[in-house]
Deep mutational scan, measured.
Amino acid sequence: MSGIALSRLAQERKAWRKDHPFGFVAVPTKNPDGTMNLMNWECAIPGKKGTPWEGGLFKLRMLFKDDYPSSPPKCKFEPPLFHPNVYPSGTVCLSILEEDKDWRPAITIKQILLGIQELLNEPNIQDPAQAEAYTIYCQNRVEYEKRVRAQAKKFAPS
């Protein structure tokens, strides 16, 4: 494992614990031996107030490669969400998460999670990743928002 990646992720964890947006979660997972795995984080993004996503808490896994922060983490909703920019596998399609697009090593975990929260309610229809959600979003916004509200209710924190 890269010392650069681990040191950056340790800084990220410290900064997150000191200050993070209300309702968001970002925690490194534990290895079988109980030690912390900084390369694999369990996160959760709350649906934004005043949107059909409100009330939901959407679980996301963030996986970092050894060359982080040169390369972005892979962000994957578990379980996958109904959304035009979420692949059926759950992987998020967002330009700041793509090395050859808008990724920059200075982007923080907090910025990534806030960017994904923004994307939930403002899909990028130029870059669809899920045919069904994309089609319904474009053709029947009322039905799309109904499905999103049902999903938010399903993923409401207990």
Rank of each mutant, 00 (worst) to 15 (best):
G115W: 00
S70K: 07
V142M: 13
W103G: 03
I109A: 12
P84Q: 01
L60D: 03
D66G: 11
I112V: 13
I116R: 05
R61W: 08
V148P: 05
G34D: 10
F58K: 05
L81T: 04
R147I: 08
F24R: 02
E118M: 10
D102V: 08
P28F: 06
A133P: 11
F58Y: 13
G115P: 04
T135K: 06
E118N: 12
V148M: 02
Q151E: 04
L57D: 05
I136M: 11
Y144G: 04
P157W: 13
D100Q: 11
K18D: 04
D127I: 00
R17F: 02
P88Q: 15
I96Y: 05
P46R: 07
L9S: 00
I125D: 05
V25S: 08
T35A: 08
M36S: 05
G56I: 02
E78W: 11
Y134M: 09
T35Y: 02
T29G: 12
P72W: 03
G34Y: 05
N124R: 03
R17N: 02
I136R: 06
N140G: 03
R149L: 09
L38E: 07
G23P: 04
L9W: 06
A106R: 01
L113T: 11
V92F: 04
N140W: 01
P128H: 02
E99L: 00
R17P: 04
R13F: 02
P88C: 00
R17C: 01
W16G: 02
K59A: 09
K48S: 03
N40I: 07
K146W: 02
E99Q: 14
L81E: 00
E132V: 08
G115V: 00
E78T: 10
W53I: 03
N85P: 02
E54F: 13
W103D: 01
A129M: 01
R61N: 14
M62P: 04
N140F: 01
G90D: 06
E99S: 11
Q117F: 12
C43L: 04
L120Q: 05
E143S: 13
E99I: 02
A44K: 15
N124L: 00
A131D: 08
N40G: 04
E132R: 08
N37C: 15
H83N: 01
N124Q: 00
Q151M: 02
K76Q: 14
L94P: 00
V27T: 03
E78D: 12
A131F: 03
L81F: 07
G56L: 02
L38D: 01
K49H: 14
G115D: 01
K18C: 09
Q111N: 13
A44G: 14
P128F: 01
F77W: 01
A150G: 12
L60T: 09
A5T: 09
L60M: 12
A150W: 09
I136D: 10
K146A: 14
P28D: 06
K110L: 06
S95Q: 03
K59L: 11
S70W: 09
N31Y: 13
V86G: 01
D102E: 10
N40Q: 06
C75L: 15
W103M: 05
L38M: 06
G50K: 14
G55Y: 14
L120W: 06
Y137D: 02
I136W: 13
L63Y: 09
P69K: 06
N37I: 09
P52S: 13
L9V: 00
G55W: 09
L113D: 03
W103F: 11
P46Y: 07
Q111Y: 15
R104S: 10
H20F: 04
A156G: 08
A131V: 13
I107T: 10
T91V: 15
P128S: 13
W103H: 06
F64G: 03
E118G: 10
A129S: 06
K74F: 15
S71F: 06
T29W: 03
T51N: 02
P79W: 14
R141L: 10
E122H: 10
K101I: 08
P21T: 02
Y68C: 05
C93R: 02
Y137M: 11
S70P: 05
K146F: 08
L120G: 04
P69Y: 01
P32V: 10
Y137C: 04
W53L: 00
N140I: 00
T29M: 11
T91K: 05
G47C: 13
E132W: 05
P73L: 05
L38N: 01
H83V: 03
N121I: 10
A15C: 12
Y134F: 08
F82C: 04
L114H: 12
E118Q: 09
D102H: 14
G55E: 12
F82L: 05
N37D: 14
K146C: 11
P28H: 07
A44I: 11
T35I: 02
L38R: 00
A26I: 07
L38G: 03
R104P: 00
P28T: 01
E78V: 15
D102I: 06
Y134D: 06
K30Y: 07
R141Q: 13
A5E: 11
I109P: 04
W16N: 01
G55F: 15
G115A: 06
D66F: 09
H83I: 03
D100S: 15
T51C: 13
E54N: 04
P79I: 15
L97M: 12
L81P: 05
Q126G: 11
P157M: 07
G23T: 01
P79K: 14
A150T: 12
K154R: 13
F77K: 02
S71H: 14
P72R: 06
Q126A: 11
P21D: 04
A129C: 04
Y87C: 02
Q151I: 09
N85C: 04
V142H: 13
A106N: 02
C93E: 06
P80L: 08
A152T: 08
F24Y: 12
E143Y: 10
I45K: 01
G90P: 06
K153L: 10
Y68K: 00
A5H: 15
Q11T: 14
F155H: 09
L6H: 08
F22I: 01
Y68G: 02
L9Y: 13
D67C: 12
K101M: 08
